[in-house]
């Protein structure tokens, strides 16, 4: 019963997302192949992972799990149903990373199960005018411990305009999701270098990047 309900919700989410955003995937740096990957994306709207998840072909989507904050997605029954049954999210503890077990452990487990991940290395939604916040270190530790997994930068354009932080009704603007060339952890690479490399690769996919920097 829950499975049927989750399947129906999945279809409803995809149809709704496509109607509102007419989202188009642009696979510039790689092809949608069944390779284990960590898709890391910019984060400006609640719907970000839904958008990435929607444009993945079904075969890949079934093996790809978004990483989300447990503090938010464990709040109510509805939140838990959406996060765990529809998106099969990997929930991580953002609030108390120090105490207790390794916060990376759920992600490592998911990777070892063969899943691909969608994660947002900025750690929180970007409500500023800058394009990208500084990256948190988790993506580095993850890549260092599972260096065979491809890191694919994913730029989500316009969703923050469709549904800005705090708004309820979406404006039906067109969204694109751009997949860049995969990068991999290089043995001995320092944390700051890796994070800078990953961040630059993501920023290079931003469509208006050159124009904004000219005028700004």
């Amino acid at each position: 019963m829950t499975r049927l309900l989750a399947a129906l919700f999945t279809i409803a989410v995809i149809v709704f997302t496509r109607l509102v955003t007419a989202v188009q995937a642009r696979w510039l740096g790689c092809v949608p192949a069944p390779i284990q990957r960590i898709y890391y994306a910019n984060h400006a709207s609640h719907g970000d992972f839904v958008l990435v998840w929607t444009v993945l072909p079904p075969a890949l989507r079934n093996k790809t799990r978004p990483v989300a904050g447990a503090d938010y997605w464990r709040k109510t029954f509805i939140h838990r149903f959406i996060a765990l049954k529809i998106f099969r999210a990997v929930l991580i503890d953002r609030l108390r990373p120090q105490c207790g077990s390794n916060p990376l452990a759920p992600m490592i487990d998911a990777l070892d199960d063969g899943a691909s991940l969608i994660l947002f290395p900025e750690g929180t939604r970007n409500a500023t005018d800058t394009q990208l916040l500084p990256f948190k270190g988790g993506i580095y530790h993850l890549s260092r411990r599972r260096p065979d997994v491809e890191m694919v930068p994913v730029w989500i354009a316009n969703l923050n305009r469709v549904l800005p932080k705090g708004e309820i009704v979406p404006v039906p603007l067109l969204c694109t999701v751009t997949f860049g060339a995969p990068l991999k952890f290089e043995t001995g690479e320092m944390k700051a270098d890796f994070l800078a490399r990953a961040r630059d690769a993501l920023l290079n996919l931003a469509p208006g990047a050159s124009r904004n920097s000219e005028t700004g």
């Binding site: 007419a22 316009n158 404006v171 039906p172 603007l173 067109l174």
Partner: peptide, 10 residues
């Protein structure tokens, strides 16, 4: 009109 307007405003 709807389709054109969303393209324009985008």
């Amino acid at each position: 009109s709807l389709a054109a307007l969303r393209e324009f405003v985008t």
